[in-house]
Nucleic acid binder design. Structure first.
Lengths: 254, 254
DNA sequence: GGCATCATGATTGCATGCACTATTGGTCAT
DNA sequence: ATGACCAATAGTGCATGCAATCATGATGCC
């Protein structure tokens, strides 16, 4: 399906004995936060396998992983699809994220090494530079800022969870937020770094809370029209005028 | 290796189109909290598959899942083993767990339905009844109490995470806590229920925090002799007296 | 024309087979 | 006796094949 010659297999994942399933996971996660993949998009095992140059077994393994992270919905005998979170799930996920990231800044306040500070500054700079560019890059960088912070704690479990909820929140944004509504958070990132350097853990935690609450609010409260991507709700307004129009909507994506 | 005839396959998982990998996961999780499986125990794919009556593929899938939950260590080309958490990981996991379960009681305070209350009371009663019985049952019931609470919030993501950290904490207890050191928490469970019924969310959160902190403290601070299960540290005291004794320690479990 | 029924293709569920890697016990030289 | 080297074995990594299940378009009936 994807452009690959019959002779030369699509050696996208070729490499050495790396983690092939993990590579697929990373790619899909990234595609989701960048909104290249949107909720409901189908992820057939063999298409994935072919695209990444591996067999269905590996693609399946990757999908299982993503399913356990809540990024894809996995139902028996059904094609895997990018998860379509509900409004309640979105709210809950942000609540959890806030508490987790409060732990992050609490652990980090006053303990940042100079090279870490430089790395964070550079990241924020990259975020600022990307403001004019594609929205996908902005969102990805914003997500990666939080992941970067978590990694700096050195706490592997906390890092893993922050990773998960961050990507999940990216999915939420994709599901609910209107285009161009999740920008302008770059300065808040800077403020958090400042508070961390100052060692003011209380302030850093407060800043992180409000920052995430802002993101959630912008994403979740804005755009009541698009609150739900449930098919029935989406089509409700159209159903009103569908009396005389023979336009037959196609359900599948491609 | 496990006793199964060559002719009659071990139809432990026979059933209909259920979730075979999930069944294996549940079994192993439970075995871990009940300390039937201890950190470092080996989990070979084919042994698992044979035991549960499925192929390696499924066993492998289950192991991948457990690996992503942090219950087993998965290294390339190596036999999967029950994870051996470090002291720091244990502390971090408890920190995360406290915040998550605070969210649980916050969501539940004053919102428990009568049947839910009855269910909780019954569970605590079962815990009390199990105090004389096997330690494994006590630990499992204690863990399940927290999981039950989380499920009652109706928040699927929160439930999933509480599930994960609870089982992980069970593993931590298995790794660090001495036998019979994690009992006597039943009354604290009752107090939490009371606070939830009273609708005093602040008090409930405080009780939950201290309850979990107690558990962590009992598990992590007690028994400095067994703080680390690293092979070198474990053998350190023995190395002193190993001068004249020909006792050759076997490294592998079975 | 609208609706239920069925057949075909698409897709997953799972087991098995082969290749490769790590481990383990033995062997040989020192 | 001790240490390094090597062969046999156990175990994983991965692809492929077959059966089962679901989705979708075609057909026939009303």
């Amino acid at each position: 399906m994807a452009g690959s010659t019959a002779t030369g297999k699509t050696r996208t994942l070729g490499g050495a004995g790396e983690d092939k399933a993990g590579t697929i996971c990373r790619a899909i996660r990234r595609a989701i936060v960048e909104r290249a993949l949107r909720p409901g998009d189908r992820l057939p095992e063999d298409a994935l396998g072919e695209r990444f140059g591996v067999s269905r077994t590996i693609a399946r393994h990757a999908l299982g992983q993503l399913g356990s992270e809540g990024l894809v919905d996995l139902r028996r005998n059904r094609i895997a699809v990018v998860a379509t979170p509900s409004m309640e799930e979105a709210r809950d996920t942000f609540d959890i994220r806030i508490e987790l990231e409060r732990l992050v800044v609490k652990a980090l306040a006053g303990r940042l090494e100079p090279d870490q500070i430089a790395q964070l500054r550079a990241h924020v700079e990259a975020e600022q530079a990307a403001r004019g560019g594609s929205e996908a890059t902005s969102i990805r960088l914003a997500t990666e800022f939080h992941v970067l912070l978590a990694e700096m704690t050195g706490k592997s479990i906390l890092t893993r969870y922050v990773n998960e909820v961050s990507y999940r929140c990216g999915l939420m944004l994709s599901a609910f937020s209107r285009p161009h509504s999740s920008e302008c958070a770059v300065s808040e990132h800077s403020e958090i770094i400042d508070a961390l350097i100052a060692g003011d853990s209380e302030n850093a935690m407060r800043l992180m809370s409000t920052h995430l609450e802002d993101v959630a609010e912008r994403a979740l409260l804005v755009a009541p029209e698009a609150r739900s991507r449930d098919l029935m709700d989406i089509l409700a307004p159209y159903a009103e005028e569908a009396a005389g129009s023979p336009a037959r909507p196609r359900r599948t994506k491609r």
